[in-house]
Simulated scan of single mutants.
Amino acid sequence: MAAVTAMLEDLRDLVPLTVEGAAAKFAAREWTPRGKLRDGVETSWRKDGVRGWTQKFRSGAVRVSFAVWIRDVDESGYFDDLDAVYEQGERELARFLPQIENSSLAGHLAEAELTTEDKDEFIAARKWILGERTLTAGVVQQDTDLPVMVVVVLEDPAPASA
């Protein structure tokens, strides 16, 4: 998971944050591309069991996300004890947070309040402001039949209109 904090440190210096710039940082750090191109740019990466991906939204906002822990459904296709899986995700998040809090990013982070949208998206989360960007680490499950994951999300808002 040190690969994630190293990438976040590289991405902090990337102004503006673009999917092309992020792809170059992933490649420079020797992440393996997963062959998911959008507009000719690789958007999905893997290294040391961690998945990384980039997204650009119509608004111009750019998001770089990492899945640092994934718990997939049981053999039945469901979670036998969803609460236990959520608790396991929260423990994994608690294990991961010190990697952010003790990294060179720590001096650049300001604690941020979770929004209502964040609370709807994350089972548990911590959020910071990093310059003009937000950095969120949390436990998510996007749908009942998808895995529970601990993700780290760096988001650069849409550029202001000129």
Results as ranks from 00 to 15, higher is better:
Trp45Glu: 15
Ala106Pro: 03
Gly77Ile: 08
Gly40Glu: 11
Asp72Phe: 11
Lys119Asn: 09
Ala23Ser: 15
Arg91Ser: 12
Val19Ala: 03
Arg38Ala: 13
Phe79Gly: 06
Gln88Arg: 10
Lys25Arg: 14
Glu132Phe: 05
Ser59Met: 01
Thr54Lys: 00
Leu82Phe: 12
Val50Ile: 13
Arg38Leu: 12
Leu105Ile: 02
Val148Thr: 11
Gly60His: 01
Trp53Val: 03
Leu37Cys: 03
Leu135Cys: 04
Ala112Met: 11
Glu92Ala: 15
Gln142Thr: 08
Glu132Ala: 04
Asp74Pro: 00
Leu146Val: 12
Leu109Arg: 05
Arg71Lys: 12
Val140Trp: 10
Gln88Ser: 14
Gly77Met: 05
Val64Cys: 06
Thr116Cys: 02
Gln99Ile: 01
Trp45Ser: 10
Phe26Ser: 05
Ala61Asp: 07
Gly131Tyr: 13
Asp39Ala: 04
Val19Trp: 08
Glu87Gln: 08
Leu135Asn: 01
Ser65Arg: 09
Trp31Gly: 10
Phe57Asn: 03
Thr115Ile: 02
Leu37Glu: 08
Phe122Leu: 07
Arg126Pro: 04
Ala67Asn: 06
Asp39Pro: 00
Glu42Pro: 00
Ile70Phe: 12
Ala27Thr: 07
Arg58Leu: 07
Glu101Tyr: 04
Leu109Asp: 08
Glu111Tyr: 07
Asp72Trp: 13
His108Trp: 15
Leu37Ile: 01
Trp69Arg: 02
Ala124Thr: 13
Lys36Thr: 12
Glu75Asn: 04
Val19Leu: 02
Leu146Met: 13
Asp39Tyr: 01
Gly40Lys: 01
Lys25Asn: 12
Phe26Thr: 03
Asp83Gly: 07
Gln55Tyr: 07
Phe96Lys: 00
Ser104Gln: 10
Tyr78Gln: 01
Glu75Tyr: 05
Val19Gln: 04
Glu113Arg: 00
Gln88Val: 07
Ala22Lys: 00
His108Lys: 08
Arg126Glu: 15
Glu20Lys: 01
Asp145Ala: 09
Glu42His: 02
Arg29Asp: 15
Gly35Glu: 09
Phe66Trp: 13
Ala94Glu: 15
Lys36Met: 12
Glu113His: 06
Thr136Ala: 02
Ser103Trp: 08
Arg38Ile: 09
Phe96Thr: 03
Ala28Lys: 10
Ala106Tyr: 07
Leu37Asn: 03
Phe66Ala: 07
Ser44Asp: 15
Glu132Gln: 08
Leu109Ile: 13
Leu135Lys: 03
Tyr86Trp: 14
Glu75Cys: 04
Gly35Arg: 02
Ile129Pro: 01
Gly89Ala: 10
Gly35His: 01
Gly21Cys: 06
Arg95Thr: 13
Glu90Gln: 12
Gly77Ser: 06
Arg46Phe: 14
Glu75Ala: 12
Val73Asp: 11
Arg95Ala: 14
Arg91Lys: 08
Leu105Lys: 01
Phe66Gly: 06
Arg133Tyr: 10
Gly77Lys: 04
Asn102Gln: 12
Thr144Asp: 15
Ala94Tyr: 10
